[in-house]
Amino acid sequence: MFSKRIVIFTGHFGSGKTEVAVNYALQAAGKGKKTAIIDLDIVNPFFRTADARNTLEAEGIKVITPIYANTNVDVPSLPAEISGMFEDRSYNVIIDVGGDDLGARAVSRYRDQIVREDYIHYFVVNTRRPMTRTKEEIVKMILEIQSSANLKVDKLVNNANILDASTPELLAEAARILEAVSAELSIPVGFVSGMEEVLSGYEGDKGIEKLYLKKNIRLPWERQ
C-alpha cells in the first residue's frame, strides 16, 4: 500500500478522502518515509487537511495547503511549492484532491509532472453517500473525475461509513458493489479503510489490505 512515491486521492465530495489521506500520510511517516501532504481541495471551504496540521507536523510531515485554507476567504489559490514537491524525489507525496469532477480539475494542472513519477491514483468511495450508492452512480462519478483530472483511476478504496454508526457489514455491502464496479471498469480495489473498531471486525475480501483510521478532523462540540 505504501510503495508508490506519489499517491493521489480523489472521490465524491464527502467520500472521506481527507481522513483517508491524512491517516495514510501519518502511517507512511510512521514507516520512516519522508512525507509531504498536499491539500489540493479548491472546492470545500470547511473540514480540510489544514484542520489536522498540528497532528501531521508533529509527525514531521510537511503540510502544503492552498494559501487561504481555513481563513475567511474562499479564493482557491494554490502555492508554487506544490510543483517543487513532484521534483524533489526525497519526498513521498500524498495529494488530497477536492471532491467530484470540479475538485479533480485542480490535479490536471499537474498531470505532466505526475505521470513522469512513480504514482498511483486512488478513488475513495463511500457507498452511503447520496451520489455514489450504486454501481451505475460510482461508474459515472469515476468517469467524470478521470476526465476532469485527466488521469486514470488505478485503484478503488472502500471507505463505506456512516460515521459513528458504521459497521463491518456496511463494508461488506460496499465490497459487493465495488466488485461490480471493478468488473465493469477493470479497476481493482486497493484497500479498505475504516475506524479501528469497525475495520477490525471486517473479514470479507480475504487478504485485502486495511488502512485503520483515527479521527483527526473534529466538529466544534467534539473539541475541548
Binding site: G14, N126, R128, R129, P130, N161, I162, L163, A165
Partner: peptide, 14 residues
Amino acid sequence: GEKILMKGNEVIAE
C-alpha cells in the same frame, strides 16, 4: 429508510 451520510446543505435540497 437506510441511514446515509450527507452534508447539511445537501440535506436541505433533498
